[in-house]
Amino acid sequence: MSAAPDLKLLRAALEKRFGDAIVPIPGQAPSRERAGFRTGVAALDALVPGGVPRRAITLWAGEATSGRTAALRVLVQAACRETLVAVVDATRTLDPAAWCGPDGSSAPGLWVARPPSAAHTDEGAWVAETLLRTGAFGLVVLDGPAPEPVEAHRLRALARETDAAVLVSTDGGGTSWRADVKLDFRRTGVHPGLRVGGRFRRPSAVQMAKGWGARTGERQVELVHEPADRLHAAHGPDRRAGARA
């Protein structure tokens, strides 16, 4: 008698008892769909009620100061409470201080990978792929240049195999590959800070389209930005922001 049916029954019993603690077998779909990752920012979550989806590739696009990085930070903070998160800082422009706690230690559940120099920026997709292959991360973020179509295809396939969510955050324009969900961030006006070293709010407009389909909605999102003086400006361009509803 084959042991295969007994193993299937055993796995089903374990999934029933322990739920999401049971890791899907690579190459197979999980027994039930798991929810995506929400930001906790009401206006953003209203655009994508299911959150950044697992088993898919999501694209966030927007120029500098459009609020994209602020939204990324609150998403990562929220996701770290549920799973291990990896952020690939391909352009080396995310200030490490903004992703650490008050004591300087990294946030629990967060890994940040950076290339050794600007000459390796284009290797971000390869790093994200390598992290996905471990099966350890529920969310992998690639911040930097958009991957090539072949790279995007591999990232999507690995997301499906490992039941993970892949988010590409880029300031580039359109891509030649289709994202499962896309958010476009843009500024709605110029709003100077309150004072040196202070926090200030800047409204942004976020528009959502599934794949390359018709636009399905737009929301005004108010983001809270940290000026360069507040954290260590020497690390690079100021992309250290938080967000709230």
Rank of each mutant, 00 (worst) to 15 (best):
T83A: 02
P108L: 11
A243R: 08
P108F: 12
A243T: 10
A71D: 00
V52R: 07
P49M: 10
A164D: 08
V52C: 09
Q28D: 09
V166Y: 10
V196L: 06
P227H: 05
V150Q: 12
H232G: 04
S169C: 15
R38D: 00
L47M: 09
G193M: 00
W99L: 13
R186S: 14
Q77Y: 08
V221P: 01
T188G: 15
L47V: 15
P5C: 05
G242T: 15
R114E: 04
G189M: 12
L223R: 06
V41P: 00
G50M: 10
V206H: 01
T39G: 02
L84T: 06
R32N: 06
C80L: 04
D6H: 12
W126P: 00
R239C: 05
A205S: 08
G101R: 15
P145D: 04
F37K: 07
E82S: 11
K16G: 10
A12F: 03
L158W: 09
P30H: 13
V48S: 08
A128F: 02
T91P: 00
W99P: 02
R186L: 03
A13H: 08
D95T: 04
R240H: 10
A205L: 13
E161D: 14
T170E: 02
Q77R: 15
G189R: 11
G138C: 10
G193A: 13
L131P: 06
D229R: 08
L231S: 07
